[in-house]
């Protein structure tokens, strides 16, 4: 089949060369085209460092990163950034334009794109995140969720193959989180978008196809959400898994692995 979207091999990185321990230690994994991978782990596990490495903001000590089959280095990082976008945690600090549409256009301006094409793509991208009605508004009038959606639109306008979310949902209220997750699921299906999300939120992780667990810079486990939630006892599991563990502790007969809420309903009504 076609080559993986991201291929990471033996990636090692440390901020301070004098320090013994690495922030990331020989991390290897790959993400297929159209797959949604979540990276979870405690604070300081190296998740955000991984994101910064993948988009070329940091340089690894050793190991290699391939994005869309292109090896990432100083020369190719600009090519890769045309095909991969990233959304960071703080919505205020990534809003560059004076209005919503100016901000969405920023990346395209950098590519020296003609105005007609930019106008078309701005409208298209804002429709995807359902913000067309506020395109003239300035950032101070937007909610955190809306700003984050603008940031996503700014990435989508470039028609990327890969979207990296670096704890992009942390500052959002549960309602906006839920809305954005739905939007992302839809986009992934419609646009064949590959998503790599770095997160603490287990509901977000549960929405993905596969989960990678980082611990102190090492990949300790990788698998489907169902596998990870039933195997990793120290992750704050989503509702379905908590229910399963609770029933298990009460010595009830429970399903073998993690179930989503709708799966639970089916199982309970059997």
């Amino acid at each position: 089949m076609n080559e993986p979207m991201i291929q990471v091999e033996n990636l090692t990185f440390k901020y301070n060369r004098l320090k013994e321990s690495n922030t990331l230690s020989s991390v290897s994994f790959s993400v297929d085209k159209g797959e949604w991978l979540s990276v979870i782990g405690n604070n300081g596990a190296g998740k955000s460092t991984l994101a910064a490495l993948l988009i070329g903001l940091l340089k690894p000590q050793s190991g290699s990163i391939f994005v869309c089959g292109i090896p990432l280095n100083e020369e190719t990082k600009w090519v890769i950034r045309r095909r991969a976008g990233i959304v960071f945690q703080n919505p205020d600090n990534q809003f560059i334009g004076a209005t919503v549409q100016d901000d969405v256009a920023f990346g395209m301006e950098n590519l020296n794109m003609p105005v007609e094409e930019m106008r078309r793509r701005v409208i298209e991208a804002l429709k995807l995140v359902d913000l067309l009605n506020v395109r003239e508004a300035d950032p101070s009038r937007l909610s955190g969720g809306q700003k984050q959606r603008v940031a996503i639109a700014g990435v989508l306008a470039l028609h990327p193959d890969l979207l990296i979310l670096d704890e992009a949902f942390v500052m959002l209220d549960p309602r906006s989180r839920c809305d954005l997750l739905q939007t992302l699921k839809r986009l992934k299906a419609e646009q064949e978008l590959t998503i790599l999300s770095i997160t603490h939120d287990m509901n977000e992780a549960a929405a993905s196809d596969r989960i990678l667990v980082l611990k102190n810079g090492y990949v300790t486990r990788s698998g489907s959400p169902a596998e990870i939630f039933s195997a990793e006892m120290d992750v704050e599991a989503p509702f379905g898994e908590r229910l399963r563990r609770l029933l298990l502790s009460k010595k009830r007969r429970v399903p073998e692995s993690y179930l989503t809420e709708s799966e639970w309903i089916q199982w309970l009504c059997k």
Binding site: L57, N93, F106, G107, N110
Partner: peptide, 17 residues
């Protein structure tokens, strides 16, 4: 960092929205 990853390079020509 955001400007960097969104491809802002002062040495290249930019168009204006």
């Amino acid at each position: 960092n955001v400007m960097d990853v969104r491809g802002y390079r002062s040495e290249l020509p930019r168009s204006s929205f």
